[in-house]
Design a binder for these strands. Structure first.
Length: 846
RNA sequence: GCCGGAGUGGCGGAAUGGCAGACGCCAGGGACUUAAAAUCCCUUGUCCCAAUUGGGACGUGCCGGUUCGAGUCCGGCCUCCGGCACCA
């Protein structure tokens, strides 16, 4: 497919004017070192790490839809830098990678190009893997996993069975997105805006019986657990809280005249005396069985037809609150009042019970509906002095207040009123406290070929059975399969796959024809990394206990409410089953920013602004590209990629390169301690400044890694090289120590060049087994400091004083400074002294 | 509409409430060179005065506030990006 166009690459070298030096500014030793690392197994993590010395850092794995792009490049070089630094700090580092290899695009490629999805996927993986290896990412490739291969999806299926056995996987009829033109089910994101992503036709709802995971059973734990995730960004936690959407309230049973119950969910039981109508969703199942009087039948049916034809977007966009009176009366159980039952399209079928009690006085939507359809408004909560006259009020009055017009409950305030009503309905048996969630059970079946088969068997005699664990994996059939979507799984039309013998009665039975959502595969991949070749169990408990939790999980924020909830859910489930000892999978989550083009546009093939990491590395060398990416912006923010940024980095690296080689040259073959401490009090001025700068740089790099601000980390080393180069003023020993330290500070980010420098300086076999430099605290304090002098908060000059000078000494220096003295006339009201930094004199001019 | 994040020179971006613009790019000037490339050095927020060395005013999206001192904290807006979107 997209092989590297070698002939073209030559043109990228040198100047545009036809200069003929086809070389990067600095030689690229990446191939040499990648080979050595491989030979010495440098990045192979131990099976069991030393206690207290483990570090599990993990980027989100890749969907292999093509080759590695700049976004991947950034993601993986970031975890690479962390992994390498931790290794130098002496940790047992686990830095794994894998492939999220099932999914729709492979099937689409199969249809378009006549390739088998597996062929397409595996060839993409091979290409991407080669690119990652060229970038020199320190992955432990012996742990590589591919979710579409049987040795992985066997355990995805096994997990399905475990969920099923615990009653957490179940089947029910549900609505799915359906495109009648393409004759297929669509994923939610493929039906964005209610329109099919391929043909543009509007998407309809279709009811199919599907497999669901009961993630709602974990809703409270998933929500409350968020509070323990101190290392996660607030933004992700906020998104997850909203997604889970817990509402506390009550379910209250209204009744039809014939006695049939119509339960509603409300967060405001204290407004129940203000109910003036009941509204039910056009899609609520109950609608079909309502005893609609003959006179209303035609109107009701017409409204239902109208609603069914309308897309969700249109419905949301419309200004009116549409509805139809069913003619059915409902009894309010708290006071026996009769109220009309309406069908209203602002009521969601999927939330609560699909009906609600209409309280126009205290809910804006109900208010608008009542106004539009001439329904009465009855205030039952007094909130401050808000207008509550039904004839004049222009909006609902929400919020807490005092109950009025509410019989025995009058006078109760806020939560007390809510509690009292709930207690009453529970006592009377007409309702109960209830908590409702926005989160819904997770629909995991897909009518697709390219996924892990659902390991279930349908037998006419025995019902639904799990495939015996000894028969796993249920392999995807390979032969001649028609992938064209027909609205049901392609597997349903493969007789040799679908027909099986019932494991219980031995009679004829059918496999489940569906495959699983790929989020199933990605919910547990971090566990398989720990024990990737285990063929007896998904992973060994002891290994999980030793390695978990993930210390650093890096990925884009796009997965905040999908993957990142599912993998927390799996973790909780597996803990309950005794497989894990942790409650949460990852202590730190970091969201890196996206990579855009220099104009701030997303890179995409259709825009034609895609930059290839391979081309860049070919033209400039691997490490310059890595460093340019780091230098462009802090890791958490988006990067505006521009080749122009390469120049500065290449100059910088050449400078370091020259410094190291010169140091070696003047040093002959002298051996030296790269962490040698110098006594600053005995050093000549130039040397002392260099030594201080060196250790100040180490301090800054530590801090910058802590907050993943590698741009300032690189800037710090740039400042250092500016101070120490060319070096002739420094002793040979100092030059060597500076060179060795710089190599190590840059090693996590520019690993190949750093290795080369380390070798030139006479060390080996690898810089990554040498200790990360530590700060010599005695080097940092300086003899004199420059104090900024402010008068009335405005900068008026600077004085240089001994570092240990007290306030009065600083003041004397200020008063004797010719430039500052003119500003000092007046009455001194106040002085603020920040030791070592600044003095501010507050003066009223005389 | 609600919830996040961001807004600083020509550009990417620095700055525990304490000298705004580190570091780099671009631009301009100079050195080296027959010349160019490469390399090195200097200048580089805006405006005003001095017209040399200096000095001053303004300046971190806008308006207020707290503080001796605010890019940073507080209140109220504006714009951009992302997410959720009738959740009873």
């Amino acid at each position: 497919m997209a092989g590297a166009p070698l002939a073209m690459d030559t043109l990228r070298f040198g100047s545009v004017e036809g200069d003929s030096s086809p070389k990067p500014r600095i030689p690229d030793p990446s191939a040499k070192w990648q080979k050595r690392w491989e030979q010495m197994g440098l990045f192979r993590a131990p099976d069991m790490p030393r206690a207290g010395k483990k570090y599990f850092v993990m980027p989100m794995f890749a969907y292999p839809s093509g080759d590695i792009h700049m976004g991947h490049f950034r993601n993986y070089t970031l975890t690479d830098a962390i992994a390498r630094k931790k290794k130098m700090e002496g940790y047992d580092v686990l830095h794994p990678i894998g492939w999220d290899a099932f999914g729709l695009p492979a099937e689409q490629a199969a249809i378009n190009r006549g390739l088998h999805p597996e062929e397409w996927t595996l060839s993409n993986i091979a290409q991407s893997k080669a690119t990652l290896q060229k970038i020199g990412i320190s992955f432990d490739w012996s742990r590589e996993i591919t979710t579409c291969l049987p040795d992985y999806y066997k355990w995805t299926q096994w997990l399905f069975v475990q969920f099923y056995k615990q009653g957490l996987a179940y089947r029910k009829p549900g609505e799915v997105n359906w495109c009648a033109h393409c004759n297929t089910v669509l994923a939610n994101e493929q039906a964005a805006g209610g329109v099919c992503w391929r043909c543009g036709n509007s998407v309809a709802k279709k009811t199919l019986t599907q497999w669901y995971f009961k993630i709602t059973a974990c809703a409270d734990r998933l929500l409350d657990g968020i509070d323990t995730l101190n290392g996660w960004p607030e933004s992700v936690k906020t998104l997850q809280r909203g997604w889970i959407g817990r509402s506390v309230g009550a379910q209250i049973d209204f009744r039809l005249e014939d006695g049939a119950k119509i339960p509603v969910f409300t967060t405001r039981p204290d407004t129940i005396y203000g109910v003036t109508f009941m509204a039910i969703s056009p899609e609520a199942p109950l609608v079909k069985s309502l005893p609609v009087p003959a006179a209303r039948r035609a109107d009701v049916d017409q409204f239902l037809r109208l609603s069914a034809a309308q897309s969700a977007v249109d419905r949301l966009a419309q200004a009116e609150r549409r509805g139809v009176d069913t003619g059915v009366q409902v009894v309010n159980p708290i006071n026996g009042e009769y109220i009309p039952l309406w069908i209203a399209d602002y009521v969601l079928a999927g939330y609560g019970t699909g009906c609600l009690m209409g309280v126009p006085a205290h809910d804006q939507r109900d208010f608008e509906f009542a106004k539009q359809h001439g329904l009465p408004i009855k205030p039952v909560i007094r909130v401050g002095d808000r207008d509550q006259n039904p004839d004049t009020m222009t909006e609902a009055v929400p919020g807490e207040g005092t109950m009025i017009n509410s019989g025995r409950f009058d006078g109760l305030v806020g939560q007390a009123g809510i509690d009292a009503v709930i207690a009453y309905v529970e006592k009377e048996g007409i309702g109960r406290a209830q908590t409702q969630y926005h989160l819904m059970d997770w629909l995991i079946s897909r009518q697709r070929y390219w996924g892990a088969p659902i390991p279930m068997i349908h037998c006419a005699q025995c019902g639904i059975l799990t495939v015996p664990e000894s028969d796993l994996p249920v392999l995807l059939p390979k032969g001649d399969i028609d992938f064209l979507p027909k609205g049901r799984s392609p597997l349903a039309d493969v007789p040799e796959y679908i027909n099986v013998t019932c494991p219980q009665c031995g009679g004829k039975a059918q496999r489940d024809p569906d495959t699983m959502d790929t989020f199933m595969c990605s919910s547990w991949y971090f566990l398989r990394y720990l024990d990737p070749h285990n063929d007896r169990e998904p992973f060994a408990r002891a290994k999980a206990q030793a390695w978990l939790p993930i210390d650093y999980y890096m990925g884009g924020i796009t997965h905040a409410t999908g993957h990142l909830i599912y993998f927390r859910f799996f973790t909780k489930f597996l803990k309950d089953q005794g497989w894990l000892t942790v409650d949460e999978p990852a202590t730190v989550l970091f969201n890196h920013g996206m990579v855009m083009d220099s104009a701030g546009q997303v890179m995409s093939k259709s825009r034609g602004n895609v930059v290839s990491p391979l081309d860049l590395m070919q033209a400039h060398g691997v490490d310059p590209v890595r460093l340019t990416m780091f230098f462009a912006s802090p890791a958490g923010r988006e990067v505006l990629w521009s080749d122009a940024g390469m120049v500065g980095i290449e100059r910088f690296l050449s400078k370091v390169d020259r410094f190291v080689r010169d140091a070696r040259t003047v040093g002959g073959d002298r051996r030296f301690d790269p962490d040698r401490r110098f006594d600053v009090s005995t050093l000549p001025d130039v040397e002392r400044e260099a030594y201080r700068k060196l250790h100040d740089t180490i301090r800054r790099c530590d801090r910058d890694f802590e907050i993943m601000q590698l741009n300032t980390c690189i800037a710090a080393v740039m400042e250092l090289i500016a101070v120490v180069a060319p070096g002739d003023q420094l002793s040979v020993e100092m030059r060597l120590v500076c060179a060795a330290t710089m190599a190590r500070l840059l090693a996590p980010m520019a690993p190949h060049l750093a290795e080369e420098w380390w070798e030139i300086l006479g060390f080996g076999p690898t810089i990554f087994r040498s200790p990360w430099p530590t700060v010599d605290e005695s080097a940092l304090p300086t003899d004199t400091v420059t104090i900024a002098v402010q008068i009335n908060g405005r900068l008026r000059g600077q004085v240089t004083v001994p570092a240990l000078a007290d306030q009065s000494a600083v003041l004397r220096a200020v008063e004797s400074d010719d430039k500052i003295r003119p500003h000092l006339s007046g009455v001194r009201l106040k002085q603020i002294y920040v030791p070592g930094r600044l003095i501010n004199l507050v003066i009223r001019p005389s």
